[in-house]
Design a binder for these strands. Structure first.
Length: 592
DNA sequence: GGTGAAAGCGCG
DNA sequence: AAAGCGCGCTTTCACC
């Protein structure tokens, strides 16, 4: 699996790194590093020759590009039709190494604050005009730190040295190195996903909207169906002007009508009997659809038959991706029919069945839980083992175990899992205890939590002062429990994110190996790199969608499964834990 | 008039 | 007033 190898690649060839960045004269510079540390002389590249240079070197040698920020560096290359196989993203890797508890000598890295930049959206923030007079706020506040990271070649070389030293000092450099490679591969994939886009059927989307809301209304007008349903709510409440879109005011009206709710959220409304409730819930559904994914969203985010959200790799503390713009993390199931392959192509969709519990079973080496998930639905396996009575109970108990539920039905079921799967439960319980103590925990590959903030420490120390009140002590216990739930979930969610990165990184390489097909007119919307081969089109935590020529669909599906197997092997070796997929090949493509 | 918090709800 | 983790986005409303 060459993609994820670091120090040397698994295909037997010595890995070489090519570090690139801006040179002192404003052009580009490149320096190649051999595994033994030998450096080539710096090569200068004219501004407009960078894409050519990268393509040439990529073809000539097995390289890992080292650059400051994939989000900024790779998008222009993709636009120029250049794909790269591997990279090392200095910004993302810095974030991981800086906080990794297993790094023995982090001091040098932590002494390079300019690389400690938070993930940012692909669109650069608008800088204030340089000639604007400083406001009072500017004078009082700390100097504004640059939001980006240095993009110079010299800085990149220095930072790469620091990162290699830090990695070498880690307790398990192999694992942490794998994480750095996986994270960087994820950054490449995120850029490629935005470039390729999700094939999106605007007519189907419009049909879903019209069916629910009525025809598209004039700008600033409410759709017909919303007006009708709103009128029903008003009639049932006996009030001509119910403020449907303002929760605080709606709450007052509901209480005046005798509906004793404390909020206007749907789960609470659903618990009351009143003729106004059904239409009100209906109205809220419609309003949500309209504002979140209505015609305005369609106009803004879908162009040329492609939905192009922005992904933020490493944007979540656990290592999951975040998104910024386009709402890729929250496409409602209702709109899934709008994901539609181009003519002659199809969508291969897969999601992992119960990824997080399976990851937990593998981490903990829990044989009973592994057995419960072998060859079948994990929750069904838990029921078979006799721990709980129904699949629903198994799911509720498992989520409660991983999230730290203490009350309600979920909390009530957790002790049964503790008896049936002590190894798995010990692992999450220990992670929670460590977090509650103020300590740090790590994922399987070594992504660590940051230490608790000053506020948290302050609450804890206040509670141990001689004059601490009962209230102080309660607040400290609550904060400790809160952090414990976070660290409990961190180890599982974060390791699941690592598994998923390995899965899609492996799959990406397999897809790139497909023989190219003739380009169809529609497929060109994916851009020069993606219109001739199967390519990733969507990724969300534990599911993936591949856009593929129909002729390749079955082979792609096999690769998706094979990559899942490879990810399990890469992370957990010969652990018996299986990662079964729910996999579908879409039947309908767009009309010719 | 712009900003930020909170409510509410969509996703895993 | 969600119980129980992690997010983003839209809207309203209080405030400067």
């Amino acid at each position: 699996m060459p993609e994820l190898a670091t120090a040397s690649s698994a295909d037997g060839t010595a890995a070489r790194w090519c570090v690139i960045g801006r040179d002192a004269r404003g052009g580009w510079g490149a320096v190649e590093l051999a595994p033994d540390g030998a450096r080539s002389a710096a090569v200068s590249i004219a501004l407009d020759r960078l894409a050519d240079f990268v393509e040439q070197r990529e073809r000539a040698a097995s390289l890992r590009w080292v650059w400051h920020d994939t989000a900024r560096q790779y998008a222009p290359l993709l636009a120029a039709g250049v794909r790269v196989e591997r990279c090392h993203d200095l910004r993302l890797c810095h974030q991981i190494l800086r906080h990794a508890g297993s790094v023995g000598e982090p001091a040098q890295l932590r002494g390079a604050p300019e690389w400690n930049a938070p993930p940012e959206a692909a669109t650069a923030p608008v800088a204030p005009p340089a000639d604007a007079p400083p406001t009072l706020f500017d004078v009082v506040a700390e100097p504004r730190r640059s939001r980006g990271v240095p993009d110079g070649l010299a800085e990149a070389l220095d930072e790469f040295d620091r990162q290699r030293s830090a990695l070498a000092s880690a307790r398990e450099p192999g694992r942490l190195g794998l994480l750095l490679a996986a994270e960087s591969a994820g950054a490449l994939i995120a850029a490629e996903l935005s470039a390729a886009g999700v094939p999106w059927d605007v007519d189907e989307h419009d049909r879903v909207l019209s069916e629910a809301l009525g025809p598209r209304p004039a700008p600033d007008a409410k759709p017909a169906r919303m007006l009708e349903v709103g009128a029903m709510v008003r009639r049932e409440l006996g009030s001509p002007d119910v403020p449907l879109d303002s929760p605080p005011r709606l709450l007052r009206v509901l209480r005046a009508a005798g509906i004793e709710v404390d909020s206007t959220s749907q789960w609470e409304l659903a618990q009351h009997e009143h003729p106004a409730i059904a239409p009100l819930l209906h109205y809220k559904k419609l309003a949500r659809l309209l504002t979140a994914n209505g015609w305005a969203w369609l106009d803004e985010w879908v162009r040329d038959g492609r939905y192009r959200p922005l992904y933020v790799p490493g944007g979540v503390v656990t290592g999951r991706w975040a998104s910024s713009g386009g709402g890729a993390l929250q496409i409602p199931r209702q709109l899934r029919p709008a994901l539609r392959a181009d003519p002659g192509w199809t969508l291969v969709s897969a999601d992992v069945a119960q990824l997080e519990p399976r990851v937990l079973a593998a981490m903990a080496g829990d044989r009973a839980m592994t057995e419960a998930g072998a060859g079948k639905d994990l929750y069904a396996g838990i029921v078979e083992s006799g721990a709980v009575a129904t699949r629903q109970e198994a799911k509720l108990a498992m989520l409660g175990a991983m999230y730290g539920a203490t009350t309600g039905e979920s909390g009530r079921l957790v002790p049964r899992l503790r008896r049936a799967y002590p190894a798995a439960m010990d692992l999450v319980d220990e992670a929670a205890a460590e977090g509650a103590r103020g300590g740090w925990v790590s994922t399987w590959l070594g992504r660590s939590t940051q230490p608790p903030g000053q506020e948290w420490e302050h609450v804890q120390s206040s509670a141990s002062m001689p004059d601490a009140t009962g209230r102080d002590e309660a607040a400290a216990r609550r904060a400790a429990r809160d952090r414990g739930r976070f660290t409990r979930n961190f180890v599982v969610q974060g390791t699941a994110a690592e598994w998923a990165l390995c899965w899609i990184a492996d799959l990406r390489q397999r897809l790139a190996a497909f023989a190219p097909v003739e380009v169809s007119q529609a497929a060109r919307a994916s851009g020069p790199i993606f219109s001739r081969r199967p390519h990733l089109a969507f990724f969300l935590h534990d599911e993936v969608i591949v856009h593929a020529p129909v002729a390749h669909a079955v082979a792609v599906a096999a690769d998706v499964r094979e990559s899942a197997r490879a990810a399990g092997l890469l992370l957990f070796g010969d652990s018996a834990v299986e990662f079964p997929l729910d996999l579908r090949i879409a039947e309908r493509a767009a009309k010719e």
